[in-house]
């Protein structure tokens, strides 16, 4: 590999400092006993214990996690079958247009998705709350899952399916014994991506939530509006760490998926 030049290294360092300083600054003051972010008095866990003793906050945290897990799970199931359907679609122009529709959903702004869901839910009379949040999260997660699973499916040699049928496998056997195991890394990746998207979604949730139901990002937003307390810092710190763990988890899952391909043929 080419050696990175000094100026390139400096530039890279600068970028990361700019990106991470605010977060580290925020986490740093979450340990401040002073109660504000102006000067650091002494180290304390009190803001963290405040987070954990606030039952309302814990409920919201649980809500967020449940919505994330459920929506990611359902979106993964729908997305996997959707991508299998897309891959085996005979009509090429139909396949292309469905893929384009899928990609449009990924790039379209959350605000638009959120607003349109709000209009839809109020029009058909769905009560805003857990259900509406869950449905909208599933909706914006499906395209992400499709995006992660589709390349794996396209990698799959179609003779594998012939081979399975040749060995007596029914359509169902082919799905459960060949296709799903083959795209498993993609499925995991899609699930984790959907999970993180759901966990940190603010814009869509902000539109479709109501009736006392709230998720963390929406709650933090409203807390920040009523006045900064260091509890927000502590909470943000916790979320940051959890996200970090998820990203690392995702890395290992995707590494495991790559492994057999990367391994050379031993003679």
């Amino acid at each position: 590999m080419e050696k990175t030049s000094k100026s390139a290294k400096f530039y890279l360092a600068l970028v990361f400092i700019v990106l991470y300083t605010p977060i580290l600054y925020l986490i740093f003051y979450s340990f401040n006993s002073g109660g504000n972010m102006n000067n650091f008095e002494s180290f304390t866990w009190e803001h963290y214990s405040a987070v954990f003793s606030d039952t309302r906050l814990i409920m919201i945290l649980l809500n967020t996690v449940i919505v994330a897990l459920l929506s990611a799970l359902i979106a993964t199931i729908v997305g996997v079958f959707g991508s299998i359907g897309i891959v085996f679609m005979r009509n090429k122009s139909l396949r292309r247009s469905i893929l384009s529709l899928n990609n449009v959903l990924i790039v379209s702004p959350d605000v638009v998705i959120g607003a349109s869901f709000l209009i839809l839910f109020t029009a058909i009379g769905v009560k805003l709350g857990f259900a509406s949040v869950l449905i909208s999260h599933i909706a914006f997660s499906i395209p992400i899952v499709v995006l992660m699973v589709l390349p794996k499916l396209q990698d799959m040699n179609s003779t594998l399916i012939d081979a399975a049928a040749d060995l007596g496998a029914s359509k169902r056997d082919i799905l459960t014994r060949v296709i799903i195991p083959f795209v498993k890394p993609g499925i995991f990746a899609g699930f984790f991506m959907a999970l993180t998207y759901s966990l940190d979604d603010f814009a869509v949730t902000f539109f479709v939530t109501g009736n006392g139901f709230s998720t963390l990002s929406v709650e933090i937003y409203s807390m920040a509006r009523t006045g900064i307390t260091l509890t927000i810092n502590a909470l943000s710190g916790i979320i940051f760490i959890v996200t970090l763990v998820l990203v690392v988890g995702y890395y290992f899952v995707s590494q495991r998926g790559k492994n057999p391909v990367g391994m050379g043929v031993r003679k």
Binding site: N157, T159, L160, D162, A163, V178, P181, F182, K184
Partner: peptide, 10 residues
């Protein structure tokens, strides 16, 4: 098969 079509996950 010509490309053997062995299942890579097994």
């Amino acid at each position: 098969f010509q490309d053997y079509a062995l299942f890579p996950h097994l």
